[in-house]
Amino acid sequence: MPLAFIVWAFAIVIVYVFLARLWWFPPPINQHGIIYDQHFLSTLLVTGVIFFLAQLALGYVIVRYRDRGQRAVYSHGNNKLEVLWTSAAAVLFIGAVLASTRVYAGVHLGRPPENALRVEVLGKQFAWSFRYPGPDGKFGRTDIKLINDAGGNPFGLDDTDPAARDDIVTSALRVPVGTPVRLTLKSRDVIHNFFVRELRLKQDLVPGMEIPLVFQADKTGVYEIPCSELCGLGHHQMRSTLEVLTAEEFRRWEQAQVEQLRQLQQP
């Protein structure tokens, strides 16, 4: 008997927390994020109703059919009901996933726009590095033998290649607002994961693969990037930030970087 009330209490508390959004997503900063939230909400609505009704029913039968000396009904089941709820569940579940396919396909199957800003993302134990092609628009040659983290060369840029000399390497991801960005995710040692909550995007960085990821941030601000795939003892410290700048700020920042590189390379 008390079990029924406990089950109901939990159902109510859980539904309340989700309705009141006591702990919730940060506001989205891109189009995909808005669609994502819509789909999450509709899934939440459907599953929430099922969840609540199921726990309600469980509590109800516990109270209603407790042993009060009555005789239990002798029944082996009801095929009509069986067919009914099987098909209802099938329609509901398959419907949900078909509806969501659009959201997933939007991330992974679209072609990146031509004018997209290209950035390489490199994960290593336990830091992030980002590489911009620089003024020439080309990523220069790299060689793993030249990798030198202390010397600020996590990518192993080969300075004998002119295209590599102007590549900008940073430890935070800076992008201009409202511009499509095409990331190339790669890892140097183990699997890491690129995750920005506000973008509603998550993608593993797999060694031996260069995985593309396209997004466009529509709101300026600074957003945290936590590594989300266990990568070793410093996993919890592998932090960087996504800084969405205005177009003007971004241009100025890029120019400052180029200038700095040029000065460094002066003999």
Partner: peptide, 19 residues
């Protein structure tokens, strides 16, 4: 089983799994 199963409906959709 109900509580744990319901959250599977979220995770089974690749779109929602992205987050």
């Amino acid at each position: 089983f109900v509580t744990g199963g319901i959250s599977g409906i979220f995770l089974g959709q690749p779109a929602l799994d992205l987050y």
